[in-house]
Design a protein around this nucleic acid. Structure first.
Lengths: 230, 230
DNA sequence: GCGTTCCTATGAACTGTTTCACAGATGCAG
DNA sequence: CTGCATCTGTGAAACAGTTCATAGGAACGC
């Protein structure tokens, strides 16, 4: 049980410079927790007391607007970490994280996490790299929203999903779609209807095959060229 | 001369936990460099070899689109640092930084910076907080671009400028405008024309007074309520 | 001083995207 | 199996913001 946790944690990039001893210590400080699909893990605005490691399942990071509107800023898979921001600056959570599938998380309390950072410079160093990657991610998100139109953004998002959460079946790439068209729209800043129209259009032109729970990309190049606004 | 540099560096938040000795060492590793208005300090895409501290003047952070289009993602004043991202992950520069006024910078070479991080945990800790702040900044930028219309974004930007780079003259707040309407537009993701139209409109309604080199906010509350999309 | 270049100003036409309104499909709860 | 909720599909109308065209003012080099 706890062995299992050590094993899981050791496979997380942030921690893979830790010694066996350190890992053991960390695993004793961490608890695991399980979330059902659509359950909220952290909510924007609430005080930040814990740091999370996603061990199994996928989750999305969103920021809510006034009414029911959402913008998604990221989608995470196992091995990824979140919740650092609020822990690092002591301010309320900067975004909401929601489970897309059944998720298993390792949860580390704020003080334990600070202790870990202070006692293990390599972890602090790696965390700096994680944050740098987030900043790059967000920067290109801002760029995309200002320079690319909706078809381009959607194509780019599909390609990203294919690359990061897809499985190849020969020439085609299959994406296990845990997202509704609404949620897909939230990722790229578009309405459900716009997403639908484009997806439909690409289905007709055989760029993609779009079934209930998955989406196959048939023509990667076509999508790539749409993503580049050409 | 070098005393001066130590003095300047000690006032930079990132470094203010350093001992006198450490500061001396850092100041010996750093060179200072001066840039003229509109000069490019770093360019997106080029290899990252240096880390910068803005000692005097203001600079803007932008990402270029295909042709002449820009999006600005930040505006920095003295005491702020930049260039960490590329240094931390070894990838090319994630954005372009351009001087808005005459700027004086302290420049630290990549290896010296890594040395500093490794030898001084407090600096690494503070840098984590700096990155956390950047992530919050960028997240709200994404939110604003998706939930707010152009008048709201422009009002919000003016209020931000007023708060961070403005000077109060009684009831009004004066912003020394180093930005053209084009550049202001780049900050909020709008065209020059849209910026002009709104500024004009607000001048007529006496919310602002808009002269060549400065812009006075006469009615903070009016702008605040526009910024909230009401 | 005079041309050149950059910035502001403004309105008309155009366009991508949203909004609205509705219909059909699918899946879950009891 | 039936009802209810949630998701997909689609077209017409409305709209926010861009593009284009054009003009005048300010600043700068020489």
């Amino acid at each position: 049980m706890s062995d299992d946790l050590i094993d899981n944690l050791s496979r997380v990039w942030l921690f893979n410079a830790l010694t066996k001893d350190d890992l053991l210590r960390l695993s004793q400080l961490a608890r695991t927790r399980v979330y059902k699909p659509k359950e909220t893990i952290v909510s924007k605005g609430e005080p930040a007391t814990e740091f999370f490691v996603l061990l199994r399942g996928r989750a999305k990071v969103t920021a809510q607007g006034t009414d029911g509107d959402d913008t998604a800023v990221n989608m995470m898979g196992s091995g990824e970490v979140f919740g650092e921001i609020g822990i690092l600056d002591g301010k309320p959570r900067s975004a909401t994280v929601t489970a897309l599938e059944a998720c298993e998380l390792a949860v580390v309390d704020k003080r334990a996490f600070h202790g870990l950072l202070a006692s293990s410079p390599p972890v602090a160093m790696k965390l700096l790299a994680v944050l740098a990657a987030r900043i790059r991610e967000l920067t290109t998100r801002v760029e995309d929203r200002t320079f690319l139109d909706i078809p381009a953004r959607l194509a780019k998002q599909l390609l990203w999903l294919a690359g990061n959460h897809g499985t190849e079946c020969g020439a085609r790439v299959r994406i296990e779609l845990k997202l509704s068209q609404q949620e897909l729209g939230d990722f790229i800043g578009a309405t459900r209807e716009s997403v639908n129209k484009n997806l439909r259009d690409w289905s007709r032109r055989a760029f993609i095959k779009h079934e209930r729970d998955y989406l196959d990309i048939l023509d990667l190049d076509a999508l790539r060229s749409i993503a580049e606004n050409r």
